[in-house]
Write a protein that binds this DNA or RNA. Sequence first.
DNA 1: AATGAATGAGATTTCATTCAT
DNA 2: CATGAATGAAATCTCATTCAT
Lengths: 227, 227, 227, 227
Amino acid sequence: MNIHSTKKSPTQADLGSKRELIIHATIKLISEYGFHGTPISMIAQEAGVGAGTIYRYFKDKDSLVLDIFKQVNCAFKETLLHGYDANQPIRDRFLHLCRGIFQYGIQNPYEFKFIEQFYNSPYGTTLRREKLFCNCGDTGQDLPLEQVFAAGQAQQVIKELPQAALIALAIGPIVFLVKDSIAGLIQLDKTTINNTLAACWDAIQQETGTNRQPVITPSSPSIEEKP
Amino acid sequence: MNIHSTKKSPTQADLGSKRELIIHATIKLISEYGFHGTPISMIAQEAGVGAGTIYRYFKDKDSLVLDIFKQVNCAFKETLLHGYDANQPIRDRFLHLCRGIFQYGIQNPYEFKFIEQFYNSPYGTTLRREKLFCNCGDTGQDLPLEQVFAAGQAQQVIKELPQAALIALAIGPIVFLVKDSIAGLIQLDKTTINNTLAACWDAIQQETGTNRQPVITPSSPSIEEKP
Amino acid sequence: MNIHSTKKSPTQADLGSKRELIIHATIKLISEYGFHGTPISMIAQEAGVGAGTIYRYFKDKDSLVLDIFKQVNCAFKETLLHGYDANQPIRDRFLHLCRGIFQYGIQNPYEFKFIEQFYNSPYGTTLRREKLFCNCGDTGQDLPLEQVFAAGQAQQVIKELPQAALIALAIGPIVFLVKDSIAGLIQLDKTTINNTLAACWDAIQQETGTNRQPVITPSSPSIEEKP
Amino acid sequence: MNIHSTKKSPTQADLGSKRELIIHATIKLISEYGFHGTPISMIAQEAGVGAGTIYRYFKDKDSLVLDIFKQVNCAFKETLLHGYDANQPIRDRFLHLCRGIFQYGIQNPYEFKFIEQFYNSPYGTTLRREKLFCNCGDTGQDLPLEQVFAAGQAQQVIKELPQAALIALAIGPIVFLVKDSIAGLIQLDKTTINNTLAACWDAIQQETGTNRQPVITPSSPSIEEKP
DNA sequence: AATGAATGAGATTTCATTCAT
DNA sequence: CATGAATGAAATCTCATTCAT
């Protein structure tokens, strides 16, 4: 994942270096133009290698993207798990993971959009969001975020919603906001990040002793009628 | 495949029919394969028309997508505004709009993913998420959701977060969940929808008189260090 | 050949009128854009008829052009022969015919360029320049200009050059000049026309009793060396 | 098919070889069928290369033709100027240039017709015939033939006609005759060429002390009446 | 008779992949 | 190993021609 390598001469371990250049270029371009919008020749140019060289490192364009996705995804997961302590309180574990996504997206915008592109492509139709944190060669354990949710529900700290809904409530806003940030639509300062994380927690936490209003209102359009 | 054909004469209906077939096929295929992943020939086959016919109705592939996006986006907005009452309480208006997104996505999965694809493509880089509800020929009023947020903040009912963050907290989870629903990963029943909507409200609402915990914890990875 | 018909209602002899509209449009457009550069649809639009209508009057695009060429070519010939008197002096007959080409080109620029286009196309490769004045259903007599040249040579009034060379010397400058005129590069007034015609005569006339210089000069590049 | 390949190494020769093959095929086919009548696939086949290869050397079909025209036109001009001496008498300079056109056309029939096609196409509408000899990167001097005419008029050796008319009288017959020659309608021997060149000179030269007849005769059809 | 919507063959152009150097 | 010229399959788009109305 070392991209900004500052070496000058193309000597030593440059065999791997070319591969890194290709990976870096692919992530950058596909994150912006998408898979079909990024020709191999463009990647070769951006990477500063010959087009044929790419085929020394990757079987074809499909596996170029697939291999890179796996690598990026695992690096992403490792980032999230860095400093993660399963013995901490539910809320802290939740915030740790969500903050990690935030930080990863801000610090690695190309990788972040690349992952997004991947999930929104036919590739990602089979793979799905819940696989986001696994299959990196480690133990086939449950995804940390799902563990947090399960534990939190057992402790009645987290709402009784389907896992998919909880994940959506937790990750959805972050992905949205990071994309806006990458697009330059918003400047994410620490306060905004913290407050947004707190709001995500508000969304999923089980509130105690409050008389909450029902959400169904008479004015809501009926789900049956199709406009 | 019913294309609102409420016209009387078969001539009129057939005149629009081809166009509708093309639009329908385009939305379906691009929602799945993306713009560059969907050749004109595939659209023609899906629509059951000759490839050349598409160019009778649309200047080129670009305007095919652009024109359809405008149309779909406006229909989407109208759906949301159907039954919307600006005089209702903040929470009701918020829930009305968010529920509308939910319903629209579930009932129009192709259109929903098409819009998503569009925003995630280079097309949507200039247009942005906050434009999602406007530019349909109506009065150039503010986007309803932003109006709700602004009014809610004035009433101290909604958190003091940037608009972009509020929108992310409101829409992000819904988009996430609808996509999972379309992918077949979750069956969205009314209870789940209602509870998720309530959770979205929890995320953005200004809580009163609760001693809330800070979100910054010592165990959080510093935003400076790059993993 | 009546093109600028000023009738209002599409009654009476409009069956022929449509044909004329098509012919007029075809000549105009092909003279400017060439055969392959002029779609049938463009002709239909310019003529103000449906594309299918063209096929009621002409078998296909090829015969559209071929039929029109024959018609235009015959009208052209008739124009030249109008007022032509085979009993007049050689020079007068020559000037009459050449002036006719000039006038025809100036007064019928579209037809003139259409004929040119035709000769420069694969169509005109078989048909050739010497056919320019014949095959209009009349007697298969010699071309008037060639008759003039033959008679002139018999009288030793015209140079002993091959017919093709004489035709080139006579017509070449006129075609050149008319094209420049049509292109707006020169305004052809009567004096210029007359003087140019006189110059054409100078080119082909047999000069008497002058000691003319030879044309071969030592400085001329040898015809053998290819650059 | 020998493309002047006097280079030593096969690498260099082959590098340019494909480009030359494409250029040669393009000139040959377009000279015969015209721009729109010559598909890229036909050029590729004639050149013996893949269709895609053409786009390695030329941006698109337009620039294929434009680039080749510039190249051919410059080579043409250089041929004419080879051995040209501005200090020679008017008549010699005139004959040198005109003979050069003759020779070029006979020796390079494809290039000659290609240039013709170009000028008769919408491309050549802006560029015009009088530009035929310039814009090859050399000094922006006047066109040689126009210089000759201007000098000749100053010396009262050449008729007082507009430049365009003089050019037409000089070049028109040659272009005509060369095209006939290429079409196989006439075999141009040295005598015919020399005599035709002499005739061109007769057309433009200022005759001295001869009582010339007027060109307007009563029998000429008036330029006002349209036949 | 007249129309123009529909078509698909064919034109231009792109691009993943190969292979000679 | 690395390259990038070459390729042809496939994509976008045009247009001559047909045919239902």
